[in-house]
Design a protein around this nucleic acid. Structure first.
Lengths: 245, 245
DNA sequence: AGGGCGGCTTGATCTAGATCAACCCTCGCC
DNA sequence: GGCGAGGGTTGATCTAGATCAAGCCGCCCT
């Protein structure tokens, strides 16, 4: 269990659970109400700050689900494997996202840090107890779960019905939007993952991802500053490719 | 708004929200606790029973999200469309499943009855108010959302990385498990949807679905009693095809 | 009774993307 | 300074599944 370094007490450990939800859409939904100081204190009392080095696992599919995490810095990939090694990355998580929520005894997927990553860790049992006492917390989690579910459905559309080019463009716009929504400058867009991760996220091979990038570059739709920095040159044209209008 | 016939008062309208969660896994999770009589009464007071004829829409993507539904009979498909008509079915919902939960102002997908279907309908605003007063309800919804999320991740694995044969077999096992979990006899498995729906769920064409069925039949892995009745002849062999072991 | 339509199957052909195979570049290491 | 490994790109070829096309069957309709 010493996969990662732990900081306790969590003096400067800001969890997105405590602060207002910055990923919410326009609507002033109850789930986004911030916690009061006492609730913040109780939540803080069970959470631990954790630092993870690049490419280190956080947990594996089928591990006992003992903790729930909230990403507060860096980026995380979550994925599932088939016995023969085929991999599907089901999500890239950025600050504010949740990790490890389940009602089963074991995690349903594996999670690994992409770069240096900071997490807030909550013992699951204690968090569940707190949920009973602080309904606002539960509302917040439900709100995030419903966001994730909508994103998962978009991803099913992408994986089931979109062409390679549409997938890559959708992905670039997604990364751009994600960065903007979190208040970062999205020009150029920074891709914290490598080609292999992108391929396994989009249901393609690394060769196809690479070819599609160069195709978009020769069409002057994007500019590749380096392998991880992309400038979106014609956002409207890209949006049309991704969504059909 | 007269897309479907409405029965009110809901004398015999049993919502899964009221009765214990029959889709839960073994663990005795708090979210599965049944409601007390008073809570049941308050929930019943805002719900309406709705009957839907086969192939009738329940709502469309981008419609204002005014109601939340709970399937109590029949079956529902939910799907997303691209402007050019490509379709991805993101789920088949059976009794006990939820429909229309979102934190946006509009639905994120379209929903349509597969066969004759019964729903419990809740005005969304009223349900949200009730959530504030009955935390147990929120727990229940969170539990269902986390189940759905896990299913969505399995589906991403299927769509992104599995072969046509693996997809079809996974689908058959899924339908079989779904029926068993709901206490129905799963031999033969009844498929309430047509080939086109199966294809759009699995990210294939109807031709490929059809060919794969006949391939499985000639390999004596399944028996097709008719187009909608399938007998799984070698469950272990099928399971190995679907999951790799 | 006939005809047309919708759902399904089957066959022939095509193609987007996978696979196989080089090759390049950077970086760390001896 | 050489060299080996890992990540990325590019080219040649292959193939699973899409597409195009035909035919079958049950059912409704007049």
């Amino acid at each position: 269990m010493s996969r990662f370094s732990v900081t306790k007490p969590p003096a400067r450990c800001a969890s997105e659970l405590v602060s207002p939800c910055n990923t919410c859409e326009v609507r002033d939904f109850a789930a986004c109400a911030p916690l009061n100081p006492d609730e913040q204190r109780r939540l803080a009392s069970i959470m631990t700050s954790v630092e993870i080095a690049p490419h280190q696992p956080i947990f594996d599919e089928a591990d006992p689900a003992e903790h729930v995490y909230n990403v507060t810095g860096g980026a995380v990939k979550i994925y599932k494997l088939l016995p023969d090694g085929r991999r599907q990355i089901t999500g890239f998580l950025l600050p504010g996202d949740f990790l490890g929520l389940t009602h089963k005894e074991a995690y349903a997927y594996s999670a690994e840090a992409l770069g240096p990553t900071r997490l807030c860790r909550f013992p699951r049992r204690k968090l569940e107890n707190l949920l009973d006492e602080i309904p606002k917390l539960e509302q917040r989690l439900l709100g995030m779960a419903s966001h994730e579910l909508a994103a998962a459905q978009d991803q099913m559309m992408l994986l089931g019905r979109k062409s390679a080019k549409e997938r890559v463009v959708s992905f670039l716009l997604m990364m751009s939007n994600g960065a903007v929504r979190r208040g970062k400058l999205a020009d150029p867009v920074t891709l914290p993952m490598n080609r292999s991760d992108i391929a396994d996220y989009l249901g393609l091979t690394i060769e196809t991802v690479s070819r599609t990038f160069t195709q978009l570059r020769t069409q002057k739709l994007i500019e590749l500053l380096d392998e991880k920095q992309v400038r979106l040159l014609k956002p409207e044209a890209l949006r049309e490719i991704a969504t059909g209008f």
